[in-house]
Amino acid sequence: MVWDRGAVSDSFPLLLAGLVVTLEITVLGSLLAYVLGLVFALIRRLRVPVLNQAVYLFVEFIRSTPLLVQVFVFFWVLQPAVGLPISAFASGVIVIGVHYACYTSEVYRAGIEAIPQGQWEAATALNLPRTRVWSGVILPQSVPRVVPALGNYTISMFKETPLLLAIGVQDLLNRAKEYGAETFSVTEAYTMAGAFFLVISYVASLLVRRLESRVGQL
């Protein structure tokens, strides 16, 4: 096995383009997971009729099936059936975002339950309207506490984006594969892809740890 330095610099622009796609999916998917997860958590907590049961079943379904199966079902079954032309990229964002929303909703639930009963009672004693209790008292206290846990899910998501190669998303791994197939420099391409993942995940997890210690002081 020979390490070809030329291939490293040669493949760099292509891999970088792939990395950008991977990061885009991670960021957009995370935003979707953060927002939708909160919506799921609130629907469950407020016991919104019908939606509550629907979310429960949906979350159970998502958590009990592999992400890759969900990607295929969405891209090859649901999307053509509905007839909306959704790109592989957008499909990836949606499937990953919704998948992780089922996990972040649990994070939010725990964050909300951690708020002491006395906070609810003080809000009642002041006659604050329900919506204000949520927006002004409960969520501003629970959301900052769950940020590190959300960050950890974003890191997992980042590491799972290569799955989307299966529907042709031009992510980092797909670009490495492409470069390897064209130049036979498989070793360099895959090693570099791995190194990109390693560096970014590691730095991100350091950041999350710092956040955790800050939240510990809240």
Binding site: A122, N127, V137, Q141
Partner: peptide
Amino acid sequence: QFNLFPHLSAIQNVMEAPIQV
């Protein structure tokens, strides 16, 4: 146990209900 809102300053705690209610 006082049950003040810990994320709000003293004056914001007192202002909250008059504004909202």
